[in-house]
């Protein structure tokens, strides 16, 4: 199936998913290029939020489009093509972050709160917030938080990035990561607690 031709010789992708898949499967270079042009900005934005660096994000997006085109034959018509591509981009970005962060990771147990037998929390410290670190420039604070996120164990970092940064729902996150919604819920709370411990090391007075 062909997309329609513009006066400037570029090609518009069909709006309908089924038509778009047929058009892409026909492997026309112009079709492929038009689709990439349409989607690349959104894909790059997602990957940059998940990875921080523009260069890493560009590599992840390139990986993602390669997977996307290779697996086009497996696309199911009950899914939306944009959702499917988004999921592939998310997984490519998370895979790159896992590889980069591996050597900094801590264990989840050392970062969760511990309790006295009567249920009181151990090691209580006063509340803190990042604005209290008056000498820290905003950009430096962001860099600290991002570095600390990299210290989370990968399974927990993935969930906090998708739920709290990408603002994906529990079910969508579960589907993207291949785990149950219950596991997403448990991991999100633990990830936030663990990151809280890591940020306390930075920002507590």
């Amino acid at each position: 199936m062909q997309g329609k031709q513009n006066p400037d010789d570029s090609v518009d992708a069909p709006a309908d998913d089924a038509a778009l898949v047929g058009w892409l499967r026909a492997s026309e270079p112009a079709a492929c290029e038009a689709f990439v042009r349409r989607e690349v900005g959104r894909a790059l934005a997602v990957a940059r939020r998940l990875l921080g660096s523009e260069a890493d994000a560009a590599d992840a997006v390139q990986d993602a489009f390669a997977s996307f085109f290779t697996s086009l034959d497996r696309f199911r018509r009950d899914a939306r093509l944009s959702t499917w591509l988004h999921r592939i981009v998310v997984n490519a970005a998370l895979a790159r972050r896992r590889a980069a962060a591996r050597r900094h990771e801590r264990t989840i147990d050392e970062l969760l709160p511990t309790y006295e037998p009567d249920g009181h929390r151990q090691g209580v410290r006063p509340a803190w917030d990042a604005s209290g670190a008056a000498s820290l420039e905003r950009e430096e604070t962001r860099a600290i938080v991002r570095r600390r996120i990299d210290e989370l164990p990968a399974d927990y970092r993935d969930v906090i990035m998708l739920r709290d940064v990408e603002e994906m729902g529990t079910a969508e996150t579960a589907a993207a990561l291949g785990v149950t919604p219950g596991a997403v819920k448990v991991r999100l709370h633990r990830a936030r607690q663990a990151l809280r411990s890591l940020l306390e090391e930075e920002f507590a007075p």
């Binding site: 917030d129 604070t141 962001r142 938080v145 906090i160 709290d164 940064v165 990151l195 940020l199």
Partner: peptide, 12 residues
């Protein structure tokens, strides 16, 4: 600080 953690994570 739990709420501040969520805010900082998103903002950063």
């Amino acid at each position: 600080t739990y709420r501040e953690t969520i805010r900082l994570c998103r903002a950063s």
